[in-house]
């Protein structure tokens, strides 16, 4: 038979002294979360006597179960969406990186799988990036792949559908990426870095200087795919990112002299639309 329940003991005020005020629920919760977040000095709550002594062990030890579980769970979630980053920097460094990241960007979303959504934005200021300058772009690429998994299913558009769009709408309407699609331009070899995620330790080594990449992420049914974008595709995709339209691109000269530009642009545009990478502009 286990021992009887440990009952909480009410505060007893001595003569002339007021009993300390009980913290409100919100105050307790704020201090609890602050204790989880803080790398240093996170033991304030148990040290202030907020918890009863357990039957075995100490309140401090039990408190550290929550602190460690908080970090381990989020390190694992970040590793799931950034496997190449985790592999390249190694488990100990990744652990420390995510702890630093969480201190600045504690998770906000209801979805734990979004915990790493700000990692790419965080990395430029992290000391690890001084040694591995490709990390921010790699993390951005990995996040694009993760986002594509759960994106709304893109509806494929055929060239017949595109041909039926009013030319004014087609050429003047803003270009847009299809659901689940992303364009990642980098001075680093993103695809080759991504492939390192499954490599054994002795093969995690790569020459990265002077190997820029322009890659596109997209959905192919339920599958997520990525490939290198050719020069014309990259020009179109970058323009879509800036909210430009086909008319802007024709005028820009980016697709060659006027007699070549239109067919070259249209062929590239249709290829990207049919692949569910771009959405053709629609009438309002």
């Amino acid at each position: 038979m286990p021992p009887a329940a440990v009952e909480p003991r009410p505060e007893v005020a001595t003569l002339g002294e007021a009993a300390p005020a009980r913290p409100t629920l919100r105050e307790l919760q704020e201090r609890f979360l602050a204790g989880l977040r803080e790398e240093e000095g996170g033991d304030a709550l148990p040290e202030a006597g907020a918890f009863l002594a357990p039957p075995r062990g100490s309140a401090g030890d039990r408190w550290r179960v929550y602190r460690e579980a908080y970090r381990l769970r989020l390190i694992e979630a970040n590793g799931n969406d950034h496997p190449a980053t985790a592999r390249i920097v190694g488990p100990a460094a990744f652990d420390r990186l995510i702890r630093r990241y969480l201190a600045v960007h504690p998770p906000a979303s209801h979805d734990i799988n979004r915990a790493g959504a700000r990692l790419a934005k965080y990395l430029p200021g992290d000391p690890l990036t001084e040694k591995l300058p490709f990390l921010p772009d790699l993390a951005g690429f990995e996040q694009a792949l993760a986002d594509a998994v759960v994106a709304a299913d893109p509806r494929p558009q055929t060239r017949e559908e595109v041909a039926a769009i009013d030319p004014d709408v087609l050429f003047e309407g803003p270009l847009a990426l299809a659901s689940g699609a992303a364009f990642c331009a980098s001075e680093w070899p993103l695809g080759a870095l991504w492939e390192l995620r499954d490599q054994p330790d002795e093969e995690v080594a790569l020459a990265v200087e002077g190997r820029p990449a322009q890659v596109v992420v997209f959905r192919d049914g339920l599958a997520v795919r990525w490939r290198d974008a050719d020069t014309d595709e990259a020009t179109l995709l970058a323009a879509a990112g800036r909210g430009e339209n086909l008319a802007n691109l024709l005028d820009s000269g980016a697709f060659g002299p006027p007699e070549e530009a239109a067919p070259r642009l249209i062929v590239t545009f249709l290829r990207l639309v049919e692949s569910s990478i771009l959405r053709a502009p629609q009438p309002d």
Binding site: L25, Q29, E30, F32, L36, R37, Y70, P106, P107, A108
Partner: peptide, 24 residues
Amino acid sequence: WTRLGAHNSHDLLPLPFTEEAVDV
């Protein structure tokens, strides 16, 4: 409870057993 404000702990954190917590 799991979150407060903009911080979600993604853990199932313990509540104090009080009338205030019952009401909330």
